Simulated scan of single mutants.
Amino acid sequence: MAINIRLARGGSKKRPYYKIVVADARSPRDGRFIEKIGNYNPLLAKDNEQRVQLDADRAKHWLSVGAQPTDRVARFLDQAGVLERSARNNPNKGKPGEKATERAEERATKAAEAAEAEAAAKAAPATGSNEETEQVAAAEIEDATSAS
Results as ranks from 00 to 15, higher is better:
D55F: 06
R88L: 13
V65M: 08
A100I: 02
E98W: 14
W62L: 03
V52P: 01
R51D: 01
D78L: 05
G66H: 11
T70R: 14
P69F: 04
R75K: 11
V82E: 05
Q68I: 14
A104L: 01
E84P: 01
S64C: 02
R58Q: 09
D71W: 06
V52R: 02
E49Q: 12
E105Q: 07
R51G: 00
V82T: 07
A87C: 01
L83A: 04
L83I: 05
A80F: 09
A100E: 03
K60A: 13
E106K: 14
R58W: 04
V73W: 01
Q68E: 08
A100Y: 01
E84K: 15
S86H: 09
R72C: 10
K95P: 00
G97M: 05
T70M: 10
V52F: 09
V82C: 10
V65T: 07
E84F: 10
N48L: 10
N92S: 15
F76N: 01
G97E: 03
R58F: 06
Q53T: 10
R103K: 06
V73F: 07
E105P: 00
K99E: 08
A74G: 10
F76H: 06
F76M: 08
P96F: 02
V82Y: 04
Q50S: 12
A67R: 05
Q79K: 14
G97N: 11
A56G: 07
R75H: 12
A56E: 07
E102A: 12
Q50T: 06
A59V: 09
R72G: 07
L54N: 13
T70E: 11
Q68A: 12
G81F: 05
G81R: 09
V65C: 03
Q68C: 06
N89Q: 12
A80G: 01
A67Q: 03
A80V: 03
P91F: 04
N89F: 12
L77V: 08
A104E: 05
Q79Y: 08
H61M: 08
V52M: 08
D71V: 15
R103V: 04
A74E: 04
Q50A: 14
D57G: 07
A80S: 03
L54Q: 11
G94M: 02
L54V: 13
E106C: 05
Q79W: 09
A67D: 05
E49P: 02
N90Y: 15
T70W: 11
K93L: 12
P69G: 08
G81A: 12
E49H: 12
R103G: 00
E98F: 13
A100P: 00
G94K: 08
L83V: 06
E102N: 05
K99S: 09
A67G: 09
W62I: 04
L83Y: 02
E105K: 11
S64G: 05
A59I: 06
V82Q: 07
D57T: 12
R88H: 15
N48W: 05
R103A: 06
N90H: 14
K99P: 00
E102Y: 09
R58Y: 04
V82G: 07
A67Y: 02
H61I: 07
N90E: 15
A67P: 00
D55Y: 08
K93N: 03
D55G: 03
A56P: 03
D55L: 06
T101Y: 04
L83R: 04
P91W: 08
Q68N: 10
N92C: 08
A74I: 11
R72E: 03
R85Y: 02
L83Q: 01
V82W: 05
K99D: 10
A59G: 06
D71K: 15
